[in-house]
Design a protein around this nucleic acid. Structure first.
Lengths: 164, 164
DNA sequence: TAACAATTATAGCCATGGCTAACAATTAGT
DNA sequence: ACTAATTGTTAGCCATGGCTATAATTGTTA
């Protein structure tokens, strides 16, 4: 019972937890070599990170063996993944960015976004997906603007009407 | 002529450049103590950062004197500021996040966002500001959804119409 | 089962970027 | 002009998180 309660973890440690959770994928545990490959760091970096995480009670790891998340580690990892998914969906679906770049940006931003902004990003996606306005819906108009550099007709017409 | 051409700078160094540019604000140069206060780091941290920046040709600094950006330093700083402004406007105007949190998030994300995503964020703001649809415009609908947790009428009606 | 390959760990280095404590220069007050 | 306060620098510490080189363990296979 000496926990600092709602701790924050470094981007690096969050990356390790996320990678381990993805590798475990429900079933088996993760190997050091797998984590190393996934995060594109060398194995000694993984070993020392895992050591640190295990001292913090986030993973269990026996020498030359598997790496597994503890309940707490899993909780943290799932939260990172939640942030990641929200951001990558936002980039891909709302901003119309290709999947690869969307993932890359999500990977970096997931560590720094505030809880409030995260919730708003999620609301935003919910909203644009739940509000289906056919041809005139928001994503379509936005994409038209992206492609043509000009506003679509609907916007222009109404804009003019307002002005006079 | 030994430059690595389109270098990338660390978040920390970008923060220093940004702070110096803001403090110089066109006219006078910056003092170490000002940078220290603005970034909430101690003065020795500033001294060593400034030393590094001057080795990289981004600032000019004479002992016990002022810190000024070089042309190159100014170029980099302006780019950081551009990213910052785009992001904070996006958070504040598009996601309806209060100014303070918008600034905080922009401060962190400005260092990691990809050029593509940045451009899209800018386009996004341009779009929602340029497409004025009165009561039924996108920001209004989104804010309605934020406040009520329910889609506004326009969305619901059309959504139903589509289904049958 | 002995030896080799693959995997993992350890030791120890390096860069980054904070910090404190102590010292030095500059500026201001009298 | 002298001294005190302010400002800035230096030296040196620490944590983080990479890395290489080398050692240890495990698993496989002849």
């Amino acid at each position: 019972m000496k926990e600092k309660v709602p701790k924050g973890y470094s981007p690096s440690m969050e990356d390790y937890l996320e990678a381990i959770a993805m590798l475990c994928g429900g079933r088996r545990a993760a190997r050091v070599s797998e984590i190393s490959r996934r995060l594109r760091v060398k194995m000694p970096s993984v070993t020392s990170a895992v050591k640190k995480l295990s001292e913090q009670g986030l993973v269990v790891h026996e020498r030359y063996g598997y790496v597994e998340l503890t309940a707490e580690g899993d909780r943290v990892a799932e939260d990172v993944i939640r942030r990641h998914k929200a951001l990558s969906r936002f980039f891909a679906e709302a901003l119309d960015i290709n999947q690869e770049v969307a993932e890359e940006d999500a990977c970096k931003m997931e560590h720094v976004i505030s809880p409030l902004s995260l919730e708003r990003v999620i609301k935003f996606i919910e909203f644009i997906e739940a509000c289906p306005l056919g041809e005139t819906n928001f994503p379509n108009r936005y994409k038209y603007y992206l492609e043509h550099g000009e506003l679509p007709e609907e916007c222009l017409e109404r804009g003019l009407r307002e002005k006079e």
